[in-house]
Amino acid sequence: MEFKELDPILHAPLRLAVISLLLSVKEAEFTFIKEKTNSTAGNLSVQISKLKEAEYIEVTKQFRDNYPLTICKITPRGVDAFENYVKALQSYMHPGEL
């Protein structure tokens, strides 16, 4: 019976929530992610930085009506990492099937 290792970058509640959210949309603003994940701005900033360092997401900073705007978008590498994470989870849930 083989258990795949869970990606430590994704195996954290808030980072997993951010990646799952971004997987379903083309792009989302920081405020949207904050609202949907029920997180604090500080914690979310830290987790977004970690996902960005791992190149799982792209972060763009813009200005709208003189207000700063942070837009996040999942990268192909992030999509691959998410798929592998789900496969690894399945290996725990249904051992022997994979």
Binding site: L6, A12, L23, K36, T37
Partner: peptide, 26 residues
Amino acid sequence: MEETFSKQESLKIIEQMIKTAKNEHR
């Protein structure tokens, strides 16, 4: 320190977030 969570919780988060995004484009 990183918060630890179970595999079931992982699946629940994924499901919740995908559902949230799905409802968003209404």
